[in-house]
């Protein structure tokens, strides 16, 4: 290493072992406070005894009670759960198959599939929403939970495929060959060996998709019918057209739900005692 001769050797370099970047740490602390404060406010005011959204007047569960007696909101909750479940199953089945095909299939179909699979990832949701709405209207389909499910599956397949594709590519192809060597057909090798090896990643992406779809608002907003509406759409209307503290309670429940699911998605690989589930950092 060439050091400029003007620098006294060592003396300057070792002013501290590695000085703490005070500015960066200060920004990080403020960042964390601002990141969690809004969430904390929602949680706090969901337990407010009064209707005020800015002043806390004592602890109460009245808004949770109100939610569990509100049939419209409960209907929405049921619809959201139903849509999330169907979208999760549909997109995982299609997405896993697509990931396997994309990695192994070397041909024009694979090239085309790989390309169109990337487009949804760079398309803002509002565009996907508008496009889905136009398609359903054009086909003369009545908007209801079915159309939401289709739109959510379309939106989710890419995520499943992206997560699974790197996992499939990392598989040792000899393992599948070993199964065939031992008498399995290609399908059996896939079912008995490849899918079990992918299971942690499949489960993690399934949980992730469930959480994303349950929380998704834009696509649901464009593709849902009038009644019932998914919970996220109800929350949107409620926030826009007059806030009831019930929303804080619903929001808190949703926060708890999605944070649990994400924690689960991150923990699944560990439950299987190995890496290979969800890598949020490297998966873009």
């Amino acid at each position: 290493m060439n050091l400029p001769a003007s620098l006294p050797p060592r003396a300057r370099r070792r002013r501290g072992p590695r000085r703490k970047p005070v500015f960066a740490i200060a920004v990080t602390v403020v960042f964390f406070v601002l990141l969690y404060l809004p969430i904390a406010m929602v949680v706090l005011f969901s337990f407010n005894a009064q209707k005020s959204l800015t002043i806390f007047k004592g602890f109460s569960l009245r808004w949770y009670e109100a939610f569990f007696h509100d049939n419209v909101l409960l209907g929405s909750l049921g619809m959201s759960l139903e849509v999330s479940l169907v979208a999760m199953i549909g997109s995982v089945v299609l997405g896993v198959a697509l990931a396997l095909g994309l990695v192994r299939h070397k041909g024009r179909l694979g090239g085309y599939a790989g390309l169109i699979m990337m487009v949804p990832l760079i398309t803002p949701e509002i565009v996907t929403g508008v496009a889905s709405l136009l398609l359903f209207k054009g086909l003369g389909v009545t908007l209801d939970s079915g159309t939401v499910m289709i739109a959510e599956i379309t939106f989710s397949i890419s995520y499943v495929t992206v997560i699974l594709r790197s996992r499939v590519a990392a598989l040792n192809p000899e393992v599948e060959e070993a199964a065939m060597d031992l008498g399995a057909t290609r399908w059996q090798a896939l079912r008995l060996v490849t899918l079990p090896a992918l299971l942690p990643a499949i489960l993690a992406s399934a949980v992730l998709i469930f959480a994303l779809v349950f929380d998704d608002f834009v696509l649901a907003y464009f593709t849902t019918g009038v009644d019932p509406q998914p919970l996220a759409v109800r929350i949107y209307s409620a926030i826009r057209f007059g806030v009831e503290p019930t929303i804080n309670a619903v929001g808190t429940l949703m926060l708890a739900g999605s944070i649990t699911l994400i924690g689960l998605a991150l923990a699944i690989p560990r439950l299987f005692g190995r890496r290979g589930g969800l890598d949020l950092i490297s998966g873009e």
């Binding site: 040792n172 000899e174 393992v175 060959e177 070993a178 199964a179 060597d181 031992l182 008995l192 060996v193 079990p196 090896a197």
Partner: peptide, 10 residues
Amino acid sequence: NTVFQSYALF
């Protein structure tokens, strides 16, 4: 039957 270089165990 084959013994693979990577062993290819399940």
